[in-house]
Design a protein around this nucleic acid. Structure first.
Lengths: 114, 114
DNA sequence: ATATTATTCAACCATATGGTTGAACGTACT
DNA sequence: AGTACGTTCAACCATATGGTTGAATAATAT
């Protein structure tokens, strides 16, 4: 397996912000409009719009228009990518080093470049 | 369960950079000195030192001195935190919405603030 | 056509991030 | 004590990020 470098940069970059994680949590329960998403925060709509753009670029959400509103939906496959990435390290935090080492030797070592 | 906001910010922020992910991969197989870590990249030692600081702040690595060198070791519990965070969404990418919804209702909704 | 509502865009600002260079520090070796 | 090696610090630079405000766009309603 080869690390999807740029994708992981965007996915983890998205998750590095609390507001964005909170937005993901909320839309995981129910899709919301941009306005509904913005309401709980003391940020401007433009700021929320930017956060949504970051999430969209990372393929963590999709938007579709319903009349004058935009409905925002979780697109969880990118989250799965992140989880799969971390899963490679599961053996380490379980102190089962052998199996991890075996795995790590199979992945592409020269794929860290932007 | 309550989201460890600042910790997750630092952990995901660390993982958002390809060089840092590559460093983690390499030290997962064997602890390395700072110099050994730096060698494969066309970056200065100071740049690598900064990356290691980021990883250290996120508690993803620990350093200990051996003579004039610093040995760098993976500290995988922070990675586990990230994996646990993502695990909350497993039901979503598996299209099992009910169980996710149940889970999400139990976590702290007001903990996204920096 | 005009107005209203929902969202985005553009310009701007402050701070963060990722990099460099050159000096400084810590430890070991003669 | 002096030298060499490994690493970090400080200052600086360019670009990215996260926020604002005010104008612009898109769809609906009057």
């Amino acid at each position: 397996m080869v690390e999807r470098t740029l994708e992981l940069n965007n996915i983890f970059g998205s998750l590095a912000d609390s507001t964005r994680r909170d937005i993901l949590r909320r839309i995981a329960q129910k899709e919301l409009t941009v306005g509904q998403i913005a309401k709980p925060y003391r940020l401007t709509l433009a700021a929320i719009s930017k956060h949504l753009k970051v999430l969209e670029k990372a393929r963590l959400i999709v938007k579709h228009r319903r009349g004058k509103e935009q409905l925002v939906q979780l697109a969880p496959l990118a989250l799965k990518d992140a989880a799969l990435y971390l899963q490679h390290y599961e053996a380490v935090w379980n102190q089962r080093f052998d199996s991890l080492d075996k795995y790590l030797k199979t992945i592409n070592h020269k794929n860290y470049g932007k």
